[in-house]
């Protein structure tokens, strides 16, 4: 029968060994299934490609116009081809939404019952968004090159895409998506409201951080966005070397994830009380 007991020692937790073996693998499988069973990633990926296309086209349209984009210098030509990185914002949002949507739609409780290790739950999200982010910026950069390169050629400006700064920029843009998505997971965990998280990340990236990088480059180059500029070899900003950019952004991602794991581990998951 149901009995009242006053904490007999024999029924204390038998071990503190942590999650059972294979728990991270299952958490990753669940995260893959989450990704495949909604169209969020598809829409954000399309939005990233569209953003890259629109920004490239807008800049390309100004070539040859008074006050428009100059393409006489290599920096000018690279600028026309650089907007694949804008898909990185969508990669960041994929990471944000992977966590924030679980809070918004109150699925976090059932997710954590199935995956009790909150560290594994968050790490699985970070692992799964890496290839997604990579695809986002790969597609974004492909779109930027597909639009920008013919336009440059039509203006008699040539860029060797397979060597030098153009290749460095392309490789940097591809890897940027992976880093950005992990950064998004950390931000999504740290900012508990989905709408606030999406708005804050978007406004910060587009306005606040961009302004700091532009007007206070000595500070801006150390920010996540500054590190991103270094990784993609952004011709329009003052930035660190590419290697330093990778290290700085990796540090931001690592610190962000550690803080996120710490916060999620301490969080009381709410459900509707009855």
């Amino acid at each position: 029968m149901t009995t009242l007991s006053l904490a007999p020692d024999r029924s204390r937790p038998a071990s503190r060994a942590g999650a059972p073996p294979g728990a991270l693998r299952l958490a990753v499988a669940a995260e893959v299934a989450r990704t495949r069973t909604t169209r969020t990633v598809l829409w954000l990926g399309l939005a990233g490609a569209l953003l890259a296309a629109v920004m490239t086209a807008m800049v390309a349209a100004t070539i040859g116009q008074p006050g428009g984009q100059e393409v006489a210098s290599e920096t000018g030509r690279l600028t026309v081809l650089s907007f694949g990185f804008s898909a990185g914002l969508m990669a960041t949002l994929v990471g944000v939404l992977s966590v924030a949507s679980e809070r918004r739609y109150r699925t976090m409780g059932s997710s954590l019952v199935a995956t009790p290790s909150r560290r594994n739950w968050l790490l699985a999200k970070a692992l799964v968004v890496v290839p997604i982010g990579l695809v986002f910026t790969t597609v974004g950069q492909a779109v930027a090159l597909a639009i920008g390169a013919p336009v440059l050629s039509s203006h008699g400006a040539h860029v060797d895409l397979w060597s030098g700064p153009a290749l460095q920029m392309t490789i940097g843009t591809l890897t940027l998506g992976a880093f950005s998505a992990v950064w998004g997971v950390a931000l999504g965990a740290l900012i508990r409201n989905q709408m606030v998280a999406v708005a804050a990340v978007t406004l910060y990236s587009i306005m606040v951080e961009a302004a700091v990088i532009q007007y206070v480059p000595a500070v801006g180059k150390w920010l996540p966005g500054g590190a991103q500029s270094a990784i993609v070899h952004d011709p329009a900003t003052e930035h660190l070397s590419a290697g330093a950019g990778y290290l700085v952004f990796a540090a931001w991602c690592t610190v962000g994830l550690l803080l996120a794991i710490r916060q999620v581990a301490r969080e009381d998951v709410t459900v509707s009380a009855t």
């Binding site: 204390r12 038998a14 739609y105 019952v113």
Partner: peptide
């Protein structure tokens, strides 16, 4: 505890639970 252990240490699926009918609205 469940079987003397915190739930985090149990094999997946040992406990089935329903606390609220939460599911992502865009998921089937």
């Amino acid at each position: 505890t469940v079987g003397g252990r915190p739930i985090a240490e149990l094999a997946p699926g040992t406990v089935g639970a329903s606390l609220e009918p939460g599911a992502h609205p865009a998921r089937t």
